[in-house]
C-alpha cells in the first residue's frame, strides 16, 4: 500500500487529493464531461408534469472561465472546468450529477476543487449575488437491506437577500413525495427547496472570493460518508474540518428502481437576477474496500 500511495503522490493530477484505498472515479474536465450531466426532473406523459424546481435545469458546460476584461482564466489544471450555471433570476438553481451504483457498502470519500462567481454583468464586487453552491449524494441501500433512500445535502450559503453569510449548512428533510402521472410508477419530491437548511455548528468560513468578479481562486472540499451506516462522517474545506457524524441526512422509504444508487450532485443557487457560475475541477471519489 505504501507503493500505491507513493505512485498517487507522484502523479501531479492525483497528488492534490487524499483518496481512500480505491479510486472509484477521477474526473478531470480536460478529458470531457466524464459522466456529469444535467439533473432532469421526473415526468410522465408530458414534460409539463415536471416540478418547476427541476424544469429550470440546463446542461452543464465545459468552461475555460473566459472573462470580458481579462480573457481566459483557465481551470485548476489544464484549460477546462465543469460549469454549473443558473438562470439570471433570484432563487434560480441548477444541478449537475454523475450516476453510479456502489458495490461495497463502506466508507467513501468525495474530494473536489471548486470556485464560484456571479456573471460579471456589473463593475462591482458582487460578492453577495451568489446564494449558495453545494453538493449532495442521492443513495439507496441494496434491495436485500430492506431499504432507505438517503440524501445527505451540504451547501455553502454565501449570501441570502444581500447579506454575506458565508457558512456551511446541511439538510435533514425534503418536501412531501408526490405521485406523477397516472401509471403509479413514478413519484417526485423537491429536495432542493429553500426550506429546512440548518447551520452546521461552527460552520462559518471566509473563503477567498478575491476582489473583482472575474478573479477566482480554487478551494478544496473533502466529504466522508459511510454507505454501511448511511451517515456522514466529516466535512473539510481548505483549512477547516468538521465532525458531522451527528448530522442526519434526508431519509425516506426506498423507491422501486433505485437499488444501490450512488449519485453525486453539484448545485448552484443565485441570490440576485444574475447567473451564478459554479466551477468544479477536478473530482475524486474513492472508497475503502479490498
Amino acid at each position: 500500500m505504501d507503493i500505491a500511495r507513493a505512485l498517487r503522490q507522484s502523479n501531479p493530477k492525483l497528488s492534490r487529493f487524499d483518496p481512500m484505498s480505491r479510486i472509484i472515479a477521477f474526473d478531470d474536465f480536460d478529458d470531457g464531461f466524464c459522466g456529469w450531466t444535467q439533473l432532469v426532473g421526473n415526468y410522465e406523459h408530458t414534460l409539463d408534469s415536471m416540478l418547476p424546481g427541476y424544469a429550470q435545469h440546463t446542461q452543464p458546460q465545459l468552461s475555460n472561465l473566459a472573462n470580458w476584461d481579462s480573457g481566459t482564466h483557465g481551470a485548476f489544471d489544464g484549460n477546462y472546468a465543469l460549469k454549473i450555471q443558473t438562470r439570471p433570476k433570484k432563487g434560480a438553481q441548477n444541478v449537475a450529477l454523475k450516476r453510479l451504483t456502489f458495490r461495497e457498502p463502506g466508507p467513501i470519500r468525495l474530494e473536489f476543487y471548486f470556485t464560484f462567481k456571479p456573471e460579471a454583468t456589473e463593475l462591482r464586487l458582487s460578492e453577495t449575488d451568489v446564494r449558495s453552491v453545494g453538493f449532495l449524494y442521492d443513495l439507496q441501500t441494496g434491495f436485500e437491506k430492506g431499504g432507505s433512500r438517503v440524501m445527505p445535502h451540504v451547501r455553502f450559503l454565501n449570501a441570502s437577500d444581500g447579506v454575506h453569510l458565508q457558512k456551511w449548512q446541511t439538510k435533514s428533510r425534503t418536501t412531501a413525495i408526490k405521485p406523477l402521472g397516472t401509471e403509479g410508477k413514478t413519484v417526485t419530491h423537491y429536495h432542493l427547496a429553500p426550506t429546512d437548511w440548518e447551520d452546521l455548528p461552527g460552520g462559518e468560513q471566509k473563503l477567498c472570493y478575491n476582489e473583482i468578479p472575474t478573479k477566482v481562486n480554487w478551494h478544496y472540499v473533502r466529504y466522508d460518508f459511510d454507505l454501511r451506516t448511511m451517515r456522514a462522517l466529516s466535512l473539510r474545506c481548505n483549512d477547516r474540518e468538521w465532525d458531522i457524524s451527528g448530522v442526519d441526512p434526508i431519509v425516506m422509504p426506498a423507491m422501486r428502481n433505485l437499488w444501490c444508487m450512488l449519485n453525486i450532485c453539484f448545485f448552484a443557487e443565485a441570490d440576485t437576477d444574475k447567473r451564478t457560475l459554479f466551477y468544479v475541477d477536478s473530482v475524486c471519489l474513492s472508497g475503502e474496500f479490498a
Binding site: 444535467q38 432532469v40 414534460l47 409539463d48 415536471m50 424544469a55 440546463t58 446542461q59 458546460q61 465545459l62 468552461s63 475555460n64 473566459a66 477546462y80 460549469k83 450555471q85 438562470r87
Partner: peptide, 22 residues
Amino acid sequence: AVVSRNETWTGSAASEPYECGW
C-alpha cells in the same frame, strides 16, 4: 446538450448562453 427544455418562447426570445469553445 439540451439547453432549453419545454421553455415557452414569446416575442423576442433567447436561449440561455452555452459555452462550448472546445
